[in-house]
Amino acid sequence: MNILCIILAAVMAPLFIGIVNQTKAFFAGRRGPGMFRLYVDICKLLRKSCPRPRHSTWLFDIAQSASLAAVIAATAVFPWTGGGGLSSFIPAAVFFYLLAAGRFFTVIGALDAGSAFEGMGASREVQFSALVEPIIFTVLGFLVLLTGDISLSGALSGIAPESWKANVIALVLAFIAFLAVFLLENCRVPFDDPETHLELTMIHEAMLLDVGGPDLAFALYGAALKFELLAAFLVMMFMPCFGQGWKHAAVMFIAIALLSAVTGVVESVMARFRFLKTPHTLMGAALVAALAVLIHVCF
């Protein structure tokens, strides 16, 4: 059943991006591209050929495949059914290291193209991801402190309702900090705008300028999967336990859909932050996470 849930999660990933886009379309008064647009795009791209930059090497060729493989591996260890499987063994650090490995390949692929804009995007990607790491690990430490379990599923699903009551302030602070991680890692407003098509302001998209065909399909699907994964992480971290199995998975997918809609709302009502201020925002989020830990330890 665990495996079925993983496959279901893998299949549903592009749908959540569709929900975000439809929400945005609703707010903008458009009809929108439809929930299933990304599926169509991916199928279309898979049938095309892979153009390559003039001076790229084998690293460019493998970059998107390896990057997607890392995200899929992270999907496979996530406790979709609330526990069991690999997730009860590995520490949460492994999950984030897999995502980091995927990022490494994207960055290397972008640098391999040798274009100024891709270098720019890669440079920003590593900058922001380096600053996000301490937030992630502060939140992880907080979860370990709260649940007394270092495994991924244990740290994620162990928050009992009474623990919520006792630590509500700390939990809300940790939620805010991780929300920043979620939006930044998925290149969402207010940190990055997936809609912008100006090379100078993009982060993630800028790294994919010269990627096409199946590679672009992999990149788009990888981004959708990562969105779903981090949303699931955020949801599961703070969702009260619904038992294990189908029920848990179903509740989680609904919650992810809601979070996607919220992301769409955020993108519709908010402007993007000033680019150069992003590091300061991230440091603020890190401080919020640290505050959550302090509040939990001291009170």
Binding site: R52, P53, R54, S115, D210
Partner: peptide, 10 residues
């Protein structure tokens, strides 16, 4: 065949 194209520079 692996088509090789110039990189995108605006």
């Amino acid at each position: 065949e692996k088509p090789r194209l110039p990189v995108w520079d605006c």
